[in-house]
Amino acid sequence: MALVDQEHMKEAGYRLSEATPGDFIALLKPRVMSLVVFTAFVGMAMAPATPNPLLALIAIAAIAVGAGASGALNMWYDADIDAVMSRTKGRPVPSGRVTPGEALAFGLVLSALSVGVLGLMANWVAGALLAFTIFFYAVIYTMWLKRSTPQNIVIGGAAGALPPVVGWAAVTGTVSVESLILFLIIFLWTPPHFWALALFKSADYERAGIPMLPNVAGHAATKKQIFIYALLLAASGLLPVWAGFASLAYGAVAAALGVGFVWYSWRVLQMPESDQAMKPAKALFGYSLLYLFVLFTALLADRLAASLGFGFGS
């Protein structure tokens, strides 16, 4: 039973929390976290060294917690706009289950712990990169770019593209051309992925006052940008073959996936302005998730085949 002063009880901020552990897990954005874990794992697996499996597992966990911490900081800062968007109004902070202060403290503590553990258990290059990733997502993207420019997710996408670089650095202690190619693939994937979503959720973003490209430059300009990025992405998917760290078999898979991405983007480009259902945009959004997952799985399978002596030549 809590003993409190009556004065304190009158303060608007006084409350007894009903937040469950599930609410705090939701603050970590588990779905985003799963993508981060997967891409970071691929970054580690592609690195030209064999880490201690236990330390690799701890490094992956630290990267996952770091990504989750940046999600919590994002939800702390964005609670006002999350509350007016249908996709996000049920999140723990806007729904009142977790206070902004709790989300902030949770995010800061987990940020410090994840960076510290990664630095101590792997190396400080990886630790510093993870700290930079959290800073970039929470401060550069969330606090600055998201509300001020339609290029928000283009520049901010760097944060989401860094996990394979962190994973690679956790094993090698360096940043290399190979890990930067993995970064580039996710960096170029991010704009068409989010702009496809922004097209069919533009009313939501309008209501929240977020300057997403469809709201600022219009749907026609967004569709053109999506198509341009799709072409760049399809080409970048082949870079691992060019750089010599993936085989031609991977190249064939990447080419097929890239053609698919360009095809879905072409359908979005052809989508009439009057189309309210926006099925092509929804299809592209779904395909983009599949694209990244299959492409990185292909890289992983390629590396596994090579290490087992089933290389297909590069």
């Binding site: 039973m1 809590a2 003993l3 009556q6 009880m9 007894l16 929390s17 009903e18 469950t20």
Partner: peptide
């Protein structure tokens, strides 16, 4: 200073 006890609800205790 006047003080009083706050009794948490069942849901708050469970959480």
């Amino acid at each position: 200073m006047e003080q009083e006890f706050v009794k948490p609800t069942e849901a708050q205790l469970k959480a």
